[in-house]
Design a protein around this nucleic acid. Structure first.
Lengths: 342, 342
DNA sequence: ATAATGTGCTTAAACGTTTAACTTCACACA
DNA sequence: TGTGTGAAGTTAAACGTTTAAGCACATTAT
C-alpha cells in the first residue's frame, strides 16, 4: 500500500514530474493543452493527492492555520466549554475550509506551546483569542506570520484585530436598564483586566450610569470569573442582601444564566422581581428561559471575518489596509428585562 | 529571518546533523554524554525547533490527528453549534496535547474532503463522530490509518469504537418516567436511522414501554432532527393537541430544551403539567431552568478515552485488544420530571 | 541565411529531516 | 601480533514536492 507520488503520475503519463507539478499548480502555460488533459486524466485515474509536507518543505506554505483559545483556570484545559468559543471556532472552520486551509486547534497552556506549534508546523497564520501578558505578544511577533487578534485591545502594527465596540455595548446594556426605570444596577463580571473586553464593558456601564446622573456604587460590582458559577453566587447575594438592586448587567450571557439561576434559587423571579441583561447573544440565549435580553454580536461572523482578514494578509492583497475591524452590535430585547416605574 | 535548521545546530555544536538527530530522538546511545550535553546546550541557545514536515516526510509520522464532525443540514456547516460536539472536542484536544499530537478539526461536508485531508497531511489517525453511509466507511478503510468511531454502531475489525449503551439509556429514561407514574409518554427525537445512536435510544424507549406493559403508540413519536427547533415544534403540538401525554423523552438535551420552551409557549409548565427527560447531560443541562433531568454520559471522558484508544493503536501497543469501549451512563434526577399519581 | 523569440518540455537542486551503512579509534582478548 | 568488539561518530541517500535553468525545436523577424 504505497503512497501514490508525483513520480507515479509522471511515469504513467509519460512526462517528467516537473510537468505534472506545473500542470497541477496553475502554471498551465508551461504545458500544452494536450498533455495537460492527459495529465489530468492520469491524476484522476490514479487518484493522486499531493503530499502537503513535501510541498510545504519547498515552498514554505503549509496551508495550516493555528487557532488558539485561552484555557480558563476554572475548567482545567477544557477550551471549548465556553460556548462563545465554540461558536467562533465554528465560523472559523467553515470559512477556512472554504478557502482550502486546514485548522489546528489548540488551547493556550501558559507555556510556549503555541510558539512551538507555529514553528514546527510552519503555520501560515494564526487566530488568537483572548488576552495574554506582554511576553506572549512579544513571542507572537517573533513568529513573523500574519496574526489576527480576536477581542483584543492590543494595537500594534504587526497584528490585525477584530472585535466589537465593547464599551458601547456595555453602555447600551446599562442604558437599556436605565430606560426601563432601573437605577440601582449591579454589574456581574469576570476579572476586569487592562485591555480586556470585560474592562471596556465595565467602562460602558460606568459611563452610562454617569450619563444618566446615577452615582456609581462599587458595592454593585461583582467581579470574579466569566462563569456560570460566579453568576449563581452573585445572584444569590443580590437576592439575599441587596434588595435595592432591581437590574443586573452580566458581562457575558453565561454569567447571566448563572445570575438568573442564583436569583431564582433565592426566591426571586426574572424579570418579575429583577431584570437581567446579558452580553454576546450566544446560541443558548434565545433558548434559555426566560429568553435572555442581551447585546448581540454576530459571533459566527466574527470567526468568518477573522479568517477573511487573515487570508487577505497572507495573500499579501491588502486592499484597504484595515488593521482593525469593528463589527456591529445590537440590543436584543427578549424576556429578561421588565419595565418598572422609576 | 531564516529558519534555524538542524544544520545550524550541527555547525554550532561542531558535529554532524546525524548526531543532532540521534541526540534529540532518544537514540542517546549513539552519542557520548559529553556531546549530548553540548548539543542540548546548543539547541537551547539557538532555540532550535524541528520542522515536522521534513520529519514527517522521512519517517511517515505526522503527529497529526484528524477530528471529523458531521455537518448538520439545518445549520449549514456550523459544526460546533452542537454543544455535545464542543464538549467532546474539548476533551480530545486536551488529551491530544498531553501526548504531543496536534489536532486538525474539520466538518464533514458530504464530499471526500475528509479522505483528501488524511492523505495530504499524512494523518497518524482520526476520530470520527457521527453516522455516515457505507461508501464513507469504505473510504475510511482505504486510508489504512487507525480510526476511532465515536457513537457509531458500525463494527468492523479495522475500526475501534467508543460509545455508550444507548439502548439501555433510552430504556433508563423511559423507565424513570414510568416509575414516576407516567404512562402516556412521547418521544421527541432526531431521524431514526439504522445503526445510529438515536435508533438505539428509540429501541430502549420501546422496550421499556413493553416491559411495563404499556402499548407503543406511533402517534407519540416526533421524529425530525436533533435540534432545539424540532423540540419547540413538538412541544407545541403536544401541548395543543395531545392532552393525554404527561411525559416526554427527548433523545438529546438540546431537543429537551426545545420541548420545554415549546410547551411553555403553549401554556404548559415543566414539570408541573408535563415532565421532560433528556439525554446526554451537556454542560447546559444543569444551568437550564428547570434543571434538566437526563441520562448522563461523561462527554469529556468520551473524548479523552477516544484519544487514549487511538494513541494506543498508533503505538501498536494494544494490550487488551479492546475494539469496542462502552462507557457508563447514569440517570441524573433534577427538576424536569415530576411524580404523578398513576 | 542568421538571429531572435517562444513553446513545451526535462534536469537537477533544494527544502529539513532521519537512518542505514560506513569509518575511525580505542580497547580487550587470544 | 593480529582480531574482534564496541563506542562515537560521519556520510549520503531518501522522503515527495517545486522551480530555476537549460535544451530542442519551430516559428518569426531581419
Amino acid at each position: 500500500m504505497k503512497r501514490i507520488t508525483i513520480k507515479d503520475v509522471a511515469m504513467a503519463a509519460g512526462v517528467s514530474t516537473a510537468a505534472i507539478s506545473y500542470a497541477l499548480n496553475g502554471k498551465e502555460s508551461k504545458v500544452s493543452t494536450e498533455t495537460l488533459e492527459r495529465i489530468q486524466a492520469t491524476v484522476a485515474s490514479l487518484n493522486y493527492i499531493p503530499d502537503f509536507s513535501a510541498r510545504s518543505l519547498v515552498n514554505k506554505k503549509s496551508y495550516l492555520i493555528g487557532v488558539v483559545i485561552p484555557e480558563t483556570e476554572e475548567h482545567n484545559s477544557m477550551i471549548l466549554e465556553n460556548p462563545f468559543y465554540s461558536e467562533i471556532v465554528s465560523g472559523i472552520e467553515s470559512e477556512l475550509r472554504k478557502h482550502n486551509y486546514h485548522l489546528i486547534l489548540t488551547g493556550m497552556d501558559k507555556g510556549k506551546g503555541c510558539f512551538d506549534l507555529s514553528i514546527q508546523r510552519n503555520l501560515d497564520g494564526a487566530i488568537i483569542m483572548g488576552v495574554y501578558n506582554e511576553d506572549f505578544y512579544e513571542g507572537l511577533k517573533l513568529l513573523r506570520i500574519p496574526i489576527i487578534l480576536v477581542d483584543s485591545y492590543i494595537h500594534e502594527a504587526c497584528f490585525k484585530t477584530i472585535g466589537i465596540d465593547d464599551e458601547f455595548g456595555g453602555s447600551l446594556a446599562t442604558t437599556h436598564l436605565i430606560e426601563n426605570g432601573h437605577s440601582h444596577i449591579a454589574i456581574v463580571t469576570g476579572k476586569i483586566q487592562k485591555d480586556g473586553v470585560v474592562e471596556k464593558r465595565f467602562f460602558g456601564y460606568k459611563s452610562a450610569l454617569e450619563q444618566a446622573g446615577i452615582a456609581y456604587n462599587p458595592d454593585y460590582v461583582f467581579e470574579d470569573s466569566i462563569s456560570y458559577e460566579h453568576g449563581v453566587t452573585a445572584g444569590k447575594v443580590i437576592a439575599d442582601k441587596m434588595s435595592d438592586i432591581s437590574g443586573v448587567f452580566a458581562t457575558a450571557d453565561m454569567v447571566a444564566f448563572g445570575v438568573v439561576s442564583g436569583l431564582r434559587e433565592a426566591g426571586k423571579r426574572v424579570p418579575d422581581d429583577i431584570s437581567v441583561i446579558g452580553f454576546d447573544d450566544i446560541l443558548m440565549s434565545s433558548m434559555f428561559i426566560p429568553q435572555l435580553t442581551t447585546i448581540r454580536q454576530d459571533i459566527k461572523a466574527k470567526g468568518i471575518k477573522a479568517v477573511q482578514c487573515l487570508i487577505q494578509t497572507i495573500r499579501g492583497s491588502d486592499p484597504e489596509d484595515l488593521s482593525e475591524v469593528v463589527l456591529p452590535i445590537a440590543l436584543i430585547e427578549r424576556q429578561s428585562v421588565r419595565r418598572i416605574r422609576a
